[in-house]
Design a protein around this nucleic acid. Structure first.
Length: 207
DNA sequence: TGCCAGGCCCTCTTTAGGGCCTT
């Protein structure tokens, strides 16, 4: 029995849908049994101008978004892709609020569980210089996936990171398996004293 | 007019403040 997760990444016009920001690109991969088995990617046109520094950051221009399908169409397609899979993202609170906002515009309620690769990374790799996705790529020697701050490259990179952290837990603590429920518990542990806490989780999950 | 995210995490904490992350 496998427990696939969808690893998600949005590019947007800013940080806050509550302040009027919208998504400009969405991408996600299905990670199942350690492998990326499906992908979704689309630019989307929400009718907003893209701030200059966002264009410089992402490489996504007004012209690119103008030529993209409407946000409503993209989100309907994505809802079909997403189904009820648990969602993983790097700093998931950001992607969750945009997912809820964009799905809300097409009348779809988001019900799935969310897990955060950044929170897990802070516990498993506390000695990393910082916990930006780009830094962790070098730190954990993850494969290149393309231009940073494009949605599919970052979604694939976060998927590689999630899998690497799963493998690291299995190796470091000699676990037979690393169920998703254990990853959920790991992200909620205190950042310090991981070894003792993992021993308790191992017993709880029979891992 | 002038303001402008927000949740997590640490610490010189909990009657708070500031850095980290995402775009």
């Amino acid at each position: 029995m496998t427990h696939p997760v969808v690893v998600l990444d949005f590019e947007t016009t800013g940080l806050s849908p509550d302040r009027g920001d919208r998504a400009t690109e969405i991408a996600a991969v299905v990670l199942d049994s350690g492998r990326i088995v499906d992908r979704y990617q689309s630019l989307m046109n929400a009718g907003l101008r893209i701030p200059w520094f966002i264009e410089r950051l992402t490489g996504i221009s007004d012209a690119m978004v103008r030529g993209a399908p409407p946000a409503t169409q993209v989100m309907r397609e994505f809802a079909t892709f997403l189904r009820d899979f648990p969602v993983v993202a790097h700093n998931v609170s950001f992607d969750r609020k945009f997912l809820v906002a964009e799905m809300g515009r097409i009348g779809v309620e988001v019900r799935q569980e969310f897990l955060c690769s950044m929170r897990v990374a802070r516990r498993i790799f506390p000695e990393a210089e910082n916990h930006k996705l780009e830094t962790l790529q070098d730190y954990a020697r993850l494969p290149g996936t393309g231009r940073h701050h494009r949605a599919l490259a970052d979604a694939e990179l976060a998927a590689h990171l999630w899998q690497r952290m799963t493998d690291e837990l299995r190796r470091r603590y000699a676990l037979r398996s690393v169920p998703l429920a254990l990853m959920r518990d790991v992200q909620n542990l205190p950042c310090r004293g991981l070894d003792d806490a993992i021993e308790r989780l191992r017993r709880r999950h029979g891992a």
